[in-house]
Write a protein that binds this DNA or RNA. Structure first.
Lengths: 348, 348
DNA sequence: TATCGTTATCAAAGCGCTTATGATTTCTTG
DNA sequence: CAAGAAATCATAAGCGCTTTGATAACGATA
């Protein structure tokens, strides 16, 4: 059996109350100097560690935060986006000596009991949620419950609900403008799961908006509905290449689909960017030198964690919503450096 | 305040004992049919969820398992190896409705109090450990404590300590033999952090062993000590290219260094595999078409989780150690398909 | 010496839950 | 119908901890 506070008290010849005070350094002025010293020594000697369960039961604080990932299929941490966000979360709570409790749920095999239990069981002090904005028992329970939480990459029309997100719209606008500056006019778009992902929808709207604004009419057949998988990126390419009026550039709603598109193009013997420019979104690590939009995922995780922590510790909240800027990262698949090199050649 | 078992008992007009029985379906024969029905209804109506802390305090079971990552620097889940192992762990405990408690520690900033507390606080029922086999307070506490644990990718000379690992030796042997079959004789090797990583050391030994066995003498300058970063892979290339007797093929102890090597080679205007064959180890996702050794990381995580679970639930252990086979994945950077194509050309 | 404030310490309640034990009722059976 | 067996339920202890209110010791003051 593990050492309890009682054992320490007995050995020190004091009451458990006194031991508790020196362990937690709370009301410590109520403990005499010598007693304190003595207890501290015995603490080390016996190797005492407070029982989290007992303490949690009494204080209603666990120093655990839950991180829940929802996705269509069981989420995989091999997804660079998720793992980067998680890294940010870990970085923050590492500093604060909190524990991270992870859970992944699939929207397909909804078993509300499980995650609702997670909310209500008193296991965690708060929740970080990465999930598409679908209707579900989970979000209802979250809203009704007293547990603090912060949504990640998930905007919500509610002043009281905390979330962090990035400026999707700006990212797409930058990309389109960049492609236009390289001379492209026929720019196709591969969309994500619009029915589930607000991010995806925002990006699509941004694409339509900026195309129109730039005088490049939006054409139905220039948009392909993908599902965030490389395979769907490949299918998009097949569809685009069948068109009479083929695009000269493709923007994908995320990097996975961009990667899939490039693979398919190469498989068909086409060169990227010479025959087709391709841009992505997310800036996941890859060796394809993808031109893409960077999101500060690590920072988003970190800041979300911080917002949650502020709630848990009842610090004043500076803001309930936080938007992070995106940044267009120009690499090779858009053709920028190709064009530059050509220009140089002509000079000579 | 949340609904407690007392509230339910009161509403149902029974004692808390009876409610507890139907909640846990334990000693359920001691509860009458109608009473059971009634309580179940009230349970739903009130939305009762047992308090994990109270239950844990009483039963000494938390249905949490801890996953601790130790590394030189703070571990990052963006590391495909770690995230894949973690995926396997999540997959297993998802089925069992356990929670995963994550913690990452740096060997640099050792603060034993933190993780020792993690072992002793009663927060978790067991521990999955991914850490280099260095001497530390952590492992001592682990051995002395009563908490079940399983090591991942970390062999130990102790019948009683559970671990999973892969057959590193075979992986390297396969790679070297493959390169030899492609006509290579001068095969260089980029090593990992041998002082910390048993895996790295095993692989190095395997390299020396098979080179000698195949009649290709081991030469000191053909081994470069890297540190698992792409940068060190690049440095290795620089060193190898300075040699009078340059290698024609490079094996890296892990994929990160292999990737770094390839980048450096290309930066220097050399072609892979035409001018230099490169092979890696781990099979992380990449678009470089790396020839590498696949480890069943997901499965390793899954099986480690299972072994721990068996211990926690006091099921009979089938085995304390588990080794997983590796598999050489031949792609393009070794030059196999190049050679094949050449052979075809000659036929015509 | 009686009184009072200060300081150091303790006793005990109670957080929500499980479970051993005992009590009460109902059912069997000779 | 009496008595033992079985079914059903309640009582209460206690897991390890925090925290309030009480107590004791000790000078200092009047």
């Amino acid at each position: 059996m593990a050492i309890t506070i009682k054992d320490v008290a007995q050995k020190a010849g004091v009451s458990v109350a006194t031991v508790s005070r020196v362990v937690n350094q709370k009301d410590i002025h109520k403990v005499g100097q010598k007693t304190q010293k003595r207890i501290e020594e015995i603490l080390k000697e016996l190797g005492y560690y407070p029982n989290t369960m007992a303490r949690g039961l009494k204080t209603r604080r666990t120093y655990n935060v839950g991180v829940v990932f929802f996705w269509f299929d069981k989420p995989s941490l091999s997804d660079p986006y998720l793992s980067s966000v998680l890294d940010g979360i870990l970085a923050f709570y590492g500093e604060k000596n909190y524990n991270i409790l992870m859970n992944t749920f699939s929207l397909k095999t909804q078993n509300p009991g499980i995650y609702t239990n997670f909310i209500n069981s008193g296991l965690v002090d708060g929740l970080l949620v990465i999930a598409p904005p679908v209707e579900s028992q989970f979000f209802q329970d979250l809203k009704q419950g007293a547990l603090p939480y912060v949504l990640i990459s998930h905007q919500v029309n509610d002043k009281d609900v905390c979330f962090v997100d990035c400026l999707n719209t700006q990212g797409i606008i930058d990309t389109v403008e960049h492609l236009i500056s390289l001379g492209h006019k026929k720019i196709a778009y591969i969309s994500g799961r619009n029915e589930y992902s607000k991010n995806s929808l925002d990006r699509l709207h941004a694409y339509k908006y900026i195309m129109k604004k730039k005088g490049l009419p939006y054409r139905e057949e220039m948009v392909f509905d993908g599902d965030f998988t490389p395979e769907s990126g490949g299918k998009a390419v097949d569809a685009f290449l069948k068109l009479k009026n083929k695009p000269t550039a493709i923007i994908a709603c995320d990097d996975s689909m961009a990667v899939g598109a490039i693979r398919e193009l190469r498989r068909l013997g086409l060169r990227v960017p010479e025959d087709m420019a391709v841009c992505g979104f997310d800036d996941i690590p890859s060796d394809l030198n993808l031109t893409t939009v960077h999101q500060p995922t690590h920072q988003m995780g970190y800041e979300a964690a911080k917002m949650l922590w502020n709630q848990i510790e009842k610090k004043p909240l500076e803001y309930a919503h936080r938007f992070f800027p995106t940044r267009l990262v120009v690499r090779e698949t858009c053709g920028f450096y190709l064009k530059k090199a050509n220009a140089k050649d002509k000079k000579h």
